[in-house]
């Protein structure tokens, strides 16, 4: 029982990360119909901004060495700038393009970022120790929970609440929900399309920045493709949750976290190497049963 609870907590922590990534992806999909493959690379950029650019194997901390009240906003700011640049240079000129064109453009952005990182930092993965206290165990009853998992969960809850309040209570939030539902109509009413899209990119940048910190702290290593599997699982989460629903993206993220963790824990050892194959098998099953996803939505921001 304790073991199961322990696994459950692992699942929730992993699911939180996927949920945050899926939110960033879902937000842009909702408003732009953009499936942003570069989101994972936004995360990579946030992670590499922590260290001094060089091809050395041992990483020296740059921003990562700053006190966290400065470091966290700084990393988020850098990722936000990258996200806004991607919009201004690539996606804005393609405003009238179809969804597949946008997706292919995002592949291009993804490769450019990966190669940029490769040039500045070299191709070898690097070890970073961002915070050695991360694995301190906190005792909750009989459960031993790593500090980092608690923080991940708390951060996820805070970000989701903040995003919900933003979308519900602020002028730009309401405009964003309207634009996601009917972009052209929102424009007819004077909503500035490019501003709203820019804000969506900025929010997705903040989410990616936070994930880069949580993920790097946990994994302790950097590579120029580190964001790719995160983005991949996030896309699966978005599809499982229900394409075009933010609540769905979150639910999907947690569902994927749960599936992956439980397979890791309970698959016979000789099958564990195929964990992801089983996970995706599950996803296909889920989609056969509920083709519209777990939370099929008429609008991206419904019931957020």
């Amino acid at each position: 029982m304790i073991q199961f609870l322990q696994n459950l907590i692992d699942a929730i922590a992993l699911g939180s990360i996927y949920a945050l990534v899926a939110l960033g992806v879902g937000l842009l999909f909702g408003i732009l119909r953009l499936i942003n493959f570069a989101h994972g690379d936004f995360i990579t950029i946030g992670a590499y901004a922590l260290i001094v650019p060089s091809a050395d194997v041992t990483a020296r901390l740059l921003i990562g060495g700053w006190p966290w009240p400065v470091m966290i906003p700084m990393i988020c700011l850098i990722v936000v700038i990258v996200a806004l640049l991607a919009d201004a240079l690539v996606f804005r000129p393609l405003r009238r393009a179809t969804s597949p064109t946008l997706m292919i453009a995002s592949f291009a952005v993804s490769y450019i970022i990966q190669n940029g990182v490769l040039m500045a930092y070299g191709s070898r993965p690097k070890a970073v120790d961002l915070w050695s206290g991360a694995n301190t165990q906190v005792l909750i009853g009989d459960l031993r929970v790593p500090m980092l998992q608690l923080i991940t969960l708390a951060v996820t809850l805070v970000l989701m609440t903040a995003l919900t309040l933003f979308l519900k209570r602020t002028a730009y939030g309401v405009q964003m929900r309207a634009a996601a539902e009917d972009f052209r109509m929102a424009q007819y009413l004077g909503v500035r399309g490019n501003v709203v899209i820019g804000i969506a990119f900025a929010i997705s940048g903040i989410l990616a920045g936070v994930v880069s910190l949580l993920y790097t702290t946990q994994s302790g290593s950097l590579s120029h493709t580190m964001g790719v599997p995160l983005a991949l699982f996030a896309f699966v989460a978005v599809v499982v949750g229900g394409m075009g629903s933010l609540v769905g993206a979150v639910v999907g993220g947690f569902a994927i976290g749960l599936i992956v963790t439980m397979l890791q824990a309970y698959l016979p050892p000789e099958l564990r190497a195929f964990r992801d194959a089983f996970a995706f098998g599950f996803v296909i099953l889920m989609l056969l049963v509920r083709p519209a996803g777990l939370v099929p939505a008429r609008s991206t921001f419904e019931r957020v």
Binding site: V174, R177, A178, E181, A186, L189, V191
Partner: peptide, 14 residues
Amino acid sequence: HIFGTLTVEENLRI
């Protein structure tokens, strides 16, 4: 072209 998932008030606020 009402924003169906927004409330009546939010539609007007837009």
